[in-house]
């Protein structure tokens, strides 16, 4: 790993200043960033830890639904969101393993936008608002393809606000080695319709399965999905599954999520 200067601000304002410098990079839980740095694939001059910022931690109900600080570890979300948004808590409780969940954070996961990460599907399916140190971004505008987001230089997520659905469930099919989502589907039913977000399947990263949303908005049952097809032409092809296999999983897991919601 290349060396760097380590700084750990205690407020969002300080962090903003620290990240304005050349070669500065934000560090959240580090569960993805550190392995990348070990491979010397990232070489920040300054690493700005967001783990010491109290105002970026915690889970609370507010105007936008459930507000979760970006530096909140998965394990805390799993516990504290359970009463308010059980599907989200369950998703958090299935990320990585317990040691990763004690360290990895919501903001880190969503900022990285790994195409097989779990959280982006919850953010997108919930129509959540991504709050940064500079602005608020709607989930539909935030995700811009594999490892690509609306975040600009020096911008970092401080909080995400999740509208709470009437019903929701996340069903994940593990990639057998990494235990990331080979495919994962988050289904959320709101008063004004159903949103379905899929992770792990597409080369474009997390996406909404609009046909399923339309069908489920009319009839929220697994049967409503039976006639639908999944366009898997741009799906991921790797050691663990073909596009066709992932396409099948999208359908199967969506039905299971509806049944579980």
């Amino acid at each position: 790993m290349y060396d760097f200067e380590f700084v750990k601000p205690s407020t969002i304002a300080e962090a903003t200043k620290a990240l304005a410098g050349d070669g500065a990079q934000a560090l959240s839980g580090g569960q993805t960033l550190l392995p990348t740095m070990k491979q010397r694939l990232a070489a920040p001059g300054t690493l700005v830890s967001l783990n010491g910022i109290a105002e970026m931690k915690g889970v609370c109900k507010g105007d936008g639904g459930l507000h979760i600080g970006a530096a909140t570890p998965h394990a805390v979300v799993a516990k504290e969101a359970a009463a308010h948004y059980p599907a989200l808590a369950a998703l958090a409780n299935g990320i990585g393993d317990p040691a990763v969940r004690n360290r990895g954070t919501l903001g880190g996961s969503v900022a990285n936008n790994d195409p097989a990460a779990c959280y982006p599907s919850a953010v997108l399916a919930s129509g959540a608002t991504v709050v940064t140190n500079k602005r608020k971004i709607a989930a539909d505008d935030y995700f811009q393809g594999m490892f690509t987001t609306a975040l600009e230089e020096g911008e970092f997520i401080t909080e995400i606000a999740f509208p709470i659905p009437q019903k929701a469930a996340y069903v994940k099919f593990n990639q057998p080695a990494s235990r990331f989502a080979l495919t994962g589907v988050f289904v959320a039913k709101y008063a004004d319709g159903v949103r379905v977000a899929v992770t792990g399947a597409s080369n474009d990263g997390v996406f909404r399965w609009k046909e399923a949303e339309a069908a489920l908005s009319k009839d929220f049952s697994a049967a409503a999905l039976s006639g639908l097809t999944v366009d898997s032409s741009d799906f991921i092809h790797d050691l663990h599954g073909t596009p066709a296999y992932r396409g099948n999983l999208v359908k199967v897991l969506t039905a299971r999520a509806v049944a579980a919601a």
Partner: peptide
């Protein structure tokens, strides 16, 4: 399959 991310 060069790491535990891909070698199950």
């Amino acid at each position: 399959s060069a790491s535990y991310m891909d070698y199950a």
